[in-house]
Simulated assay, not measured.
Amino acid sequence: MMNVIEKGILAPRQQADVSPIADASLELAADKLGLAIDTTGASCGVGLFRGTRPLVEIIIERGRTHSASLVPAIEQSLSLLDAAVADIDYYMVTTGPGSFTGIRIGLATVKGMAFPAGAPIIPVTSLAALAAPFCASSVAPGVADISLGAEPPLVVSQLDARSERLYAGAMLGHQCLVPPHATHCRAWTEQIFDELIPTYAASTPAPRLIVVGSGSQTLVTHPYWQERLSAQPLLVEYIPDQRLSARGVALAASQAVASYQQAAFVSPEALTAFYISKSQAERLAEKSGHEN
Rank of each mutant, 00 (worst) to 15 (best):
V143K: 00
E164R: 07
R162I: 04
L148P: 01
C176E: 11
I146E: 06
T183D: 14
L166C: 01
A150K: 12
A187H: 03
E164Y: 03
P179Y: 03
Q158D: 07
S147Q: 11
P141T: 11
M171Y: 13
L177A: 08
S157Y: 08
R165P: 01
D145Y: 01
L159N: 02
V139N: 14
P152Y: 13
A168Q: 05
M171S: 11
A150G: 00
I146G: 00
L166G: 09
V143A: 15
G169A: 09
R186N: 11
H181I: 12
D160W: 09
Q158K: 03
H181L: 12
L172A: 08
Q158A: 15
V155C: 00
V178R: 10
L154E: 08
Y167P: 06
M171Q: 12
D160M: 03
A161D: 10
L177P: 03
E151Y: 06
T183N: 10
G142Q: 12
A170P: 07
R165K: 12
S157L: 02
L172G: 01
A187R: 00
E151S: 12
G149K: 07
G173N: 12
E164H: 08
S138N: 15
Q158P: 00
P179T: 10
A182I: 09
T183H: 04
V139F: 15
L166S: 07
A150I: 03
Y167A: 07
E151F: 10
P179A: 14
G169N: 00
Q158V: 07
E164K: 10
L148A: 01
L159G: 00
P141G: 12
V139D: 13
P180K: 07
L166T: 13
Y167T: 07
H184S: 07
Y167I: 08
P141M: 10
S147W: 03
A168T: 06
S137N: 15
A170K: 08
S157R: 07
L172P: 02
S157E: 02
T183W: 12
V155T: 02
L154K: 05
P179N: 11
A161F: 14
P153W: 05
H181A: 14
G173H: 02
Q175E: 14
G149L: 06
H174V: 12
V178T: 13
A161N: 11
L154T: 11
